[in-house]
Nucleic acid binder design. Sequence first.
DNA 1: TTAATGACGACTATTATAGTCGTCTATATT
DNA 2: AATATAGACGACTATAATAGTCGTCATTAA
Lengths: 147, 147
Amino acid sequence: MFSMKTKYAIKALIRLAHKRHNGPVLIADLSVEEGIPKKFLENILLSLKNEGMLASRKGKGGGYALLRRPEDIRIAQVVQLFDGPLAVPSCVKMSMVRSCNACGESPQCGLRLVMAELKESISGCLDRLTLLDLVLESEEPVFDPVI
Amino acid sequence: MFSMKTKYAIKALIRLAHKRHNGPVLIADLSVEEGIPKKFLENILLSLKNEGMLASRKGKGGGYALLRRPEDIRIAQVVQLFDGPLAVPSCVKMSMVRSCNACGESPQCGLRLVMAELKESISGCLDRLTLLDLVLESEEPVFDPVI
DNA sequence: TTAATGACGACTATTATAGTCGTCTATATT
DNA sequence: AATATAGACGACTATAATAGTCGTCATTAA
Ligand code: SF4
Ligand code: SF4
């Protein structure tokens, strides 16, 4: 469903969100805490930085930090960054890239309906979710003291 | 999104549904009409037959035919046959196979929410659609004669 | 000046997909 | 029975994507 890059990216973002009031986080720390191969994580964080979601600082005391608020980071954007645009057929008009395939795009092609509906479902879901939702979900559950 | 096998399978099923009152359809014909490599289509149809959706007859006058009614064939079943079960994380309890990945399945993993919601969206969509829906969609539009 | 730390291009290994080939088996027709 | 037709089926290949590694360079704080 998702590539490892996407999954690692989301996990790293959640971790960075949790730590965002403690100054920059080292790649090495993130790598250990989330069990992500360090060199691989490097690439991923760099992409996220270029996307404008993270800031970094080199040298001693450096590291990565969240640049935008968790509620302003859509999961859809992360997925799109690593797994590319949702592979919607070219006949379903959107600025999406990969064509569904060699079909002449006949207006009666029966695949269109599935593709279109699925696209609605998925992007509806991913557009709605933000990093904040995931952060809240992954927090330690609060124990209500009885009485 | 879908493998070619899945897409070809759906297209072939639609075509077979359209022709289902005309006796068995040759692989060769389906292949030409839908632009599917013949040998490849062979495998696909065989899988669909083993799944109980199609019947076949060998020899002269043979070919493939739809075994169940279009409204009884769920698109989800076709997708699952060729692309395997939706890759839902093992932590989201369902009888799904591929694990999301080496994570210890901590109850606080933030990925769970995305995976679970997405799974709902997608399988909701694919479970709802049947072959009949696609067949209707791909029929020639009826021209209402004015007056 | 130096140790820490991110940046970045090139490389590799593994796997999945898409598709092909050859041969065998079943059936209808004559 | 003979033959042409048509599906069954296992083995094979080519290509591309994914997941990840390696080496080196650039920047910064102390
Ligand atoms: S195969 Fe059908 S759904 Fe896909 S691009 Fe062509 S017309 Fe659209
Ligand atoms: S990584 Fe998270 S979502 Fe995936 S299986 Fe593990 S706990 Fe579940």
